[in-house]
């Protein structure tokens, strides 16, 4: 990893520390600054409220010219998060072709929070959950809350 990338990550970490968006906590390891661990609370008013989700943000060597990789380490019932052991998330500004080098990690964290409030159905990674969200909102909410209880407490 280049010196520029390290400098950038440190800078962003400083900003995140100075002004952490509400409802999240960032664990940062000086020795491995390319991997951030984020603890995110389920936003109030969403089906995930009350849950605590562990996320991982991995910065590629080419950062900031390639997007960071975001994954849920805590299982979550969400149309935009892959329902497997990876829990990966790839949409919006996280896509390699939409990523812009001046984007900030804070913007990524805010995007995740807003997606927890309102999933992006058109860009779903789990079509069945997206379908359920569209067709049968009640069932979706029940499943989501169920998963929160099972995995995110």
């Amino acid at each position: 990893m280049s010196a520029g990338a390290k400098k950038r990550i440190m800078k962003e970490y400083g900003e995140c520390m100075a002004e952490t968006p509400p409802g999240m906590k960032i664990n940062f390891d000086e020795r491995n600054m390319t991997k951030w661990e984020v603890l995110m609370d389920g936003p109030d008013g969403s089906v995930y409220a009350g849950g605590h989700f562990k996320l991982e943000i991995v910065f590629p060597n080419e950062y900031p010219f390639k997007p960071p990789v975001v994954s849920f380490r805590t299982k979550i019932y969400h149309p935009n998060v892959s329902n497997d052991d990876k829990g990966s998330m790839c949409l919006g500004l996280l896509r390699p072709d939409e990523w812009k080098p001046p984007n900030k990690v804070v913007a990524v964290l805010r995007l995740i929070q807003s997606l927890m409030v309102e999933p992006n159905i058109d860009d779903a990674i789990e079509p069945s959950i997206a379908n359920e969200y569209k067709e049968n909102r009640k069932e979706f909410e029940k499943n989501a809350k169920d998963w929160v209880k099972r995995y995110a407490k």
Binding site: F65, K66, P67, P96, D97, E98, W99, K100, P101, P102
Partner: peptide, 10 residues
């Protein structure tokens, strides 16, 4: 501009 100029991969 955001999609065709600024994007990292264009």
């Amino acid at each position: 501009c955001s999609q065709n100029i600024e994007a990292a991969n264009c």
